[in-house]
Amino acid sequence: MSSIRALSACALAGLCTTLSPLPSLADVPTADVPGSSDHPVLRRFSGSLLVGFAQQDWEQRSFPDASGVAKNGDHFANPQPVEGKVTRLFYLAPQDKGPLEVFRNHQQALHAAGFKTGWSCESKDQGCVKAYFALNKNDRLRGMSWAKGDLPNMTVASGGRWPLEASISPEGGRMLVGQLTQGGRTLHLLLYSAMAQNAYTHRTATYIEIVEPKTMPTGQVTVDAGAIGQSLKAEGKISLYGLFFDTGKSEIKPESQAQLAEMAQVLKADPKLRVYIVGHTDNVGGFDANLALSLARAQAVVAALGKPPHGIEAGRLSAKGAANIAPLASNADEEGRARNRRVEMVLQ
């Protein structure tokens, strides 16, 4: 009885301490997104989880240039399109690691690797709130895979929770945009760190986009017979990219059949038509080797056109090799080299 009276007196006096349960961590992510991984050029902040991940083999993204965000409106002042393989990463740092600590660690690691900053912000006055809104939510979420879990309110017991998706915020936000050159290629990188949803989560989220240069896959559209005929009539030749070979090999691959069929259709439509089949390479490797390879590939195309179901007479076709002496573009980058690797039909 005395203990009951003591408790009541304590409560009446307002001196009792209420022991509320801590927020549940049961739903906080505990593992990375299945199938995801850090990008090779930038490792995660120690102890972080990769909770959002997307990768596209070839796509276009828009990054701000040195002018940053617009003076009027929440968007980048002069967004620059960058194309290539796109990797998007969304990290959650360990509890109570703030945005500044996470951002500085990423910044220092990048600069040590030779990163060149194009634009950055670290405060509202520098445009960080505008930068947050310029990161279009729909674009950030498109195609992302997410880890299991969400973000509980760590400040107030039973104070609710928020989904992981799009859980960056303008609170404590900092952005870094620029380029990193490694292995002879230049990558474009955008990084934004801020509180995950709000200060109540006690967690920092970091969103990263990395675009690495890569030639768009070519040869995915076969040139039809009509276009071949028109080009031969107008220019006396046509470049074809729907004929496939392994690197350094001359055996024509099965996926070339659609293009071969269109070439054969043109030849069958005009029995008097005679053409050179000319192989071209880029400038990788020695000239003599490229000359032999380009000729061997042209001969493979001639042989394929002479077989069923095409059945084009061998006397109407003449195989030639040009190696890399007639480029269509500079061989200084992969995009140009891809254009130069081709087979041409040329009127005799």
Rank of each mutant, 00 (worst) to 15 (best):
100 L>E: 15
99 P>N: 03
91 Y>R: 01
84 G>V: 00
86 V>W: 08
86 V>E: 13
104 R>T: 05
79 P>Y: 09
96 D>K: 10
94 P>L: 01
82 V>Y: 01
101 E>F: 03
82 V>W: 00
96 D>V: 07
81 P>E: 09
86 V>L: 13
82 V>I: 10
73 G>W: 08
80 Q>I: 09
82 V>E: 09
93 A>W: 02
93 A>L: 03
102 V>I: 05
95 Q>I: 15
89 L>P: 04
89 L>N: 01
91 Y>A: 14
73 G>C: 12
78 N>P: 06
104 R>E: 10
95 Q>R: 15
85 K>W: 07
89 L>E: 01
102 V>N: 07
75 H>G: 11
104 R>S: 14
85 K>G: 15
87 T>H: 10
101 E>Q: 15
89 L>I: 06
90 F>G: 04
76 F>T: 02
96 D>C: 04
78 N>R: 08
93 A>Q: 10
91 Y>L: 12
79 P>W: 04
73 G>V: 07
91 Y>K: 05
81 P>T: 14
103 F>E: 05
88 R>F: 03
101 E>V: 14
88 R>V: 07
76 F>D: 00
77 A>H: 04
101 E>C: 04
84 G>A: 00
80 Q>L: 08
84 G>Y: 02
77 A>T: 11
76 F>M: 07
75 H>E: 09
92 L>N: 02
